[in-house]
């Protein structure tokens, strides 16, 4: 993630995951869908910064909770089980989400009661 080489390697990894069908933009996920953010990238710098400031950062767990009633837009997304953010599909598509790879600190977002060991 740090440095130029790291980012290229990461992009390469992302490409592989996309081909394997394991990653998708946040905007395509359905309510109930969970995953881990792999990349936050937008053509416009301000959208990227806005997303980062609201907690959409690489490594964060996301869970799509709700869709709007018209055109299934906007989305309500829970980040790291702590904060819920509403955003439109357009912006959500700047967030690339992969599977919850089994990191030791992972939570199963479907079973809320479990506390996160640290």
């Amino acid at each position: 993630m740090d440095g130029h080489g790291g980012r290229e390697r990461q992009l390469f990894e992302l490409g592989r995951l996309v081909k394997a069908g394991l990653t998708q933009p946040l905007g395509l996920m359905r309510p109930g869908g969970v995953g881990r953010i792999l990349a936050v990238r937008s053509g416009e710098g301000d959208v990227e910064r806005g997303l980062l400031e609201m907690g959409f950062v690489e490594g964060a767990c996301v869970e799509v909770l709700h869709h709007g009633f018209l055109g299934r837009d906007p989305l309500a997304v829970r980040i790291n089980q702590a904060m819920t953010v509403a955003l439109r599909r357009g912006e959500a598509n700047a967030v690339l989400v992969g599977p919850l790879l089994n990191r030791a600190t992972d939570v199963e977002p479907t079973t809320d009661q479990e506390s996160r060991p640290s």
Binding site: M1, R49, L52, E53, G55, V57, E58, G59, A60, Q81, A82, D112, Q113, E114, S115, R116, P117, S118
Partner: peptide, 22 residues
């Protein structure tokens, strides 16, 4: 901003004794 997020994560690992239930 990304660096700040990482720093926050580090801080919480140091300071949070037990995480609360969501």
């Amino acid at each position: 901003i990304r660096a700040h997020h990482r720093e926050v994560e580090r801080l919480l690992q140091e300071a949070v004794v037990r995480e609360g239930a969501p």
